[in-house]
C-alpha cells in the first residue's frame, strides 16, 4: 500500500496515519527518523549509554503502543521528545544524577561502568589534525553542556542539536515561551563562561 520511497518522503503526520492503520513499515520509519534525536537527547541528559538505550527504547515502545491516541493537531516530534525528556527527568530526579562528568556517571564505580557511562564523542573532521581538534572541541563543549542544569541542558540540546523552534521547546518541556528563551539565554551565558578560559 505504501512503498519505502513514499514513506521516506512522507511527512510525520502521514507516517503516523499509516502506523495507526497498523503498517509495520510506518512503525519502522518513525523509529528510523527519531532514534538518533531521541537517543542523543536522553544520552546527553543521563550520560549513561546503557540507560539511555533502555529509556529511548521505552520511549518508542510507549509512543508506538499508544499511536492510536496521538492527536494530529500536535507535532509528532513534540510528542516523542516530551515523552523522552520526561523519562530522562524522572530518572534524574530518582537517581539525583544532575552533576555529571565526561569520565562517566558518578555512580559508575567500576572501570567498565565508567567506560560505559563516558561520553563517546564522534568526529566529522577530514584530516587527522582537524579530527584531533574536533574531538577536543567536542569534549569541551560536551563537558560544558554536562555542567548545565538539566532544564538548561534540555533547552540547549533541543535548540542547538535538534534545531527545534522556541515554541516547540516550550511545548515539549511544558514551560512558558518566555521561560524557554530565558533558559537558553542563561545557558548560553553559562556555556560562554565555562568555555572562555579554554578559548584563551
Amino acid at each position: 500500500m505504501t512503498g519505502s520511497r513514499d514513506l521516506r518522503e512522507a511527512t510525520d503526520q502521514q507516517v503516523v496515519v499509516w502506523a495507526q492503520e497498523g503498517h509495520e513499515s510506518a512503525f519502522r520509519e518513525l523509529i528510523r527518523r527519531y532514534q538518533r534525536p531521541v537517543f542523543s537527547l536522553v544520552y546527553r541528559m543521563l550520560r549513561d549509554k546503557e540507560l539511555a538505550e533502555d529509556l529511548s527504547q521505552e520511549t518508542f515502545i510507549k509512543v508506538l503502543n499508544h499511536i492510536d491516541s496521538y492527536r494530529p493537531e500536535h507535532k509528532f516530534s513534540s510528542w516523542i521528545f516530551k515523552i523522552a525528556n520526561n523519562a530522562a527527568i524522572d530518572h534524574l530526579r530518582r537517581k539525583e544524577l544532575d552533576t555529571l562528568s565526561l569520565e562517566g556517571a558518578p555512580d559508575a564505580v567500576t572501570q567498565e561502568r565508567q567506560a560505559a557511562t563516558a561520553l563517546q564523542i564522534g568526529d566529522r573532521a577530514e584530516s587527522p589534525l582537524e579530527e584531533v581538534e574536533a574531538r577536543e572541541l567536542g569534549s569541551q563543549i560536551e563537558a560544558a553542556v554536562a555542567r548545565l542544569r538539566p532544564e538548561y541542558r534540555a533547552c540547549i540540546i533541543l535548540r542547538h542539536v535538534e534545531g527545534r523552534p522556541y515554541e516547540e521547546i516550550a511545548k515539549i518541556l511544558d514551560l512558558p515561551l518566555g521561560t524557554v528563551k530565558t533558559y537558553i539565554h542563561r545557558a548560553r551565558g553559562e556555556l560562554r563562561q565555562i568555555l572562555m578560559p579554554l578559548r584563551e
Partner: peptide, 21 residues
C-alpha cells in the same frame, strides 16, 4: 562550539528491539 554537538546513534538492532515489544 555548539555546532560541534552531534547526534549519537544507539546500538545496532535498536529498531528490532523496539518492534519486538
Amino acid at each position: 562550539d555548539l555546532a560541534a554537538l552531534e547526534r549519537f546513534t544507539p546500538k545496532p538492532g535498536f529498531e528490532s528491539r523496539v518492534l519486538d515489544s
